[in-house]
């Protein structure tokens, strides 16, 4: 049953051009990162004059752009595109026919989360590989050794966030409400990140401290509570979404 709905969701993602748009945008991100890294010193020179000495860009600058783009735009783009994934179907009434045919409601939640997460993993990976390729070509230095260790926390945060997006759009009446709930969630995380004592617990560290993970060996290890909290929050979000959706009026 889950497989049937996964196929339906995947078809929806493809035919509504939703996946294509996501893919193109993340591809553009991937290309922009090394470009911005190269351009920034040039722009500095142009605005402050030739005398202004700027250090030559390195691979680190490119990866800085990558994690900045992902944590500041990529995450919200997900929330914008998927913020109405459940509420939209409820409002249109498209689930009535399927549920009255015996489709278990938890299948709706689970298949949606799986497909959204798969979409995110794919586009994030594409963006990562593109940035990686160009960075290796333009900045062949040894300054960013732990590429995957830095990237994996972002992926985990994304998977947890998609669960939260599904929950938000279950609780919300429309996609705007869903979007605002997700934004509210990240604001809470940002406020918590002001307490630096908690940084090893805060899920937000997984997308804000990536440069540390990238450069220093073993720097991810103390963050294991944050990884755990992120995973648990995601699982919890899915659980609550299931409970709420079971009682939701279609």
């Amino acid at each position: 049953m889950t497989w049937i709905m996964i196929k339906k969701e995947a078809r929806e993602a493809w035919r509504s051009r939703r996946f294509l748009i996501l893919l193109i945008v993340f591809l553009i991100f991937g290309l922009m990162n090394p470009l911005m890294a190269k351009l920034t010193p040039e722009i500095m020179k142009m605005s402050f004059g030739k005398q202004f000495s700027v250090p030559a860009p390195t691979s680190l600058d490119s990866w800085t752009q990558f994690y900045k783009n992902n944590s500041q735009i990529g995450i919200y783009l997900l929330a914008i595109i998927f913020g109405g994934t459940i509420s939209g179907e409820v409002n249109r009434g498209t689930l009535v026919n399927l549920v009255t045919k015996g489709l278990p409601r938890r299948t709706v939640i689970v298949s949606k989360w799986l497909v959204i997460t798969a979409e995110w993993l794919l586009v994030a990976l594409v963006s990562f590989l593109v940035t990686w390729g160009y960075t290796a070509y333009y900045f062949p230095d040894q300054k960013s050794p732990h590429l995957w260790l830095a990237f994996l926390p972002l992926l985990l945060f994304g998977c947890s966030l998609t669960a939260l997006i599904v929950l938000a759009s279950t609780l919300a009446r429309n996609s705007y409400e869903g979007l605002f709930m997700v934004i509210g969630y990240t604001i809470v995380l940002y406020l918590l990140s002001l307490f630096t004592d908690f940084k090893h617990y805060n899920p937000l560290s997984l997308i804000n401290h990536n440069l540390t993970f990238l450069t220093k060996a073993g720097s991810l290890t103390p963050y294991w509570p944050a990884l755990l909290v992120t995973g648990v929050l995601g699982a919890l979000a899915l659980l609550v979404a299931n409970l709420k959706f079971a009682r939701k009026q279609l």
Partner: peptide, 15 residues
């Protein structure tokens, strides 16, 4: 959903 396997439903405005 168990009893729904016995029923067919046509809503007034099917979506």
């Amino acid at each position: 959903a168990t009893t729904n396997q016995l029923t067919g439903y046509l809503p007034d405005v099917p979506a």
